[in-house]
Each structure stands twice: as C-alpha cells, then as structure tokens.
C-alpha cells in the first residue's frame, strides 16, 4: 500500500470556455453495486467526446479506481462525481467522498494496484482533502485526431 501524495487538481489547460452542458454531476450512495453508475456515465461522456473503444474502456476502469481510492467496505456516505468536458478532446473527473453525518473520514492508503492502473490509463490524477471531504481526480485526453 502506498500513500498517494496530496495534490490539487491543476487548472484546465484548455482555454475554451466550458458550456453549461459540458459539466455533468452524479451523486451516488456508497454502495458497491452502484459504482457501476460512475463507469457508465464516464463511458457515455467519453463516447460523446470521441474517445475510441479502447480509450472508453480505459476511462471506465480509471473512474472505478478513482472511486475505490476514496472508500472502503463499511464506509457510509455519498460519492459526488463531477465530469467536465475539457475542450474538444478531454474529460476531467473529480470524485468527492462525503461521509455520512457523524461518520468521520478515514485517511486510507491507496492500493498500489489502483495507482499503477491510474498511472497507465490517464494523463493526470491526484488526491486532496477539501472542506473535510476526501477528493480524487483524473484527467484524460483523446489520443487520436479526428479529421
């Protein structure tokens, strides 16, 4: 197990102004059978941005690992995911764990396997604590050029 360094999500490198429909928010209770919703949303949005099949599969797995990096069995609360389209070829996903009232946040080491997967599949990723909530984020850009 390795402690992932706390890093703030850098400001977007895409100068294009983000239109309102380019931000999607999803909030799910922390339940193992609902993490699939985070994957499905990521896949749908990646497809809209023009990611190819392999890139969509990469993002599906990456967002799963993002969620898993914040919660463990027994955690109670909500995962709030914010999907942001960045320019014409990128997606940023920020995931925040909000513990249920009265339940403290546990600082957990992130599984080595999760880190290796995120390192390999996305352009950037990191973790931070914000307002008493744990937060993890990633950024992935499409690799191919659309004619």
């Amino acid at each position: 197990m390795t402690e992932m360094p706390a890093t703030e999500m850098p400001a977007t490198r895409f100068p294009k102004e983000i239109a309102p429909w380019d931000v999607i928010e999803l909030t799910i209770p922390v339940r193992t059978d609902l993490v699939v919703l985070a994957r499905l949303t990521a896949a749908t949005l990646a497809s809209r941005v023009g990611f190819d099949v392999e890139e969509i599969e990469d993002l599906r797995l990456a967002v799963e690992e993002l969620c898993l990096s914040l919660v463990r069995n027994g955690d109670d609360g909500r995962l709030r995911l914010r999907y942001t389209r960045e320019g014409d070829d990128g997606i940023a996903i920020a995931c925040t764990f909000e513990a249920a009232p009265g339940r403290g946040l546990r600082e957990l080491p992130v599984d080595d396997l999760s880190i290796r997967i995120l390192d390999a599949l996305v352009d950037e990723h990191g973790r931070s604590s914000e307002g008493g909530h744990k937060r993890a984020w990633l950024r992935k850009r499409r690799s191919r050029t659309v004619a």
């Binding site: 994957r39 599906r60 797995l61 799963e64 690992e65 898993l68 599984d111 396997l113 999760s114 997967i117």
Partner: peptide, 9 residues
C-alpha cells in the same frame, strides 16, 4: 468483460 483492482486483489 471488466476487471478492476478489487478483482486483481
């Protein structure tokens, strides 16, 4: 069709 770090563990 899909496998994550939990499965690897």
């Amino acid at each position: 069709s899909f496998l994550d770090s939990t499965a690897l563990g």
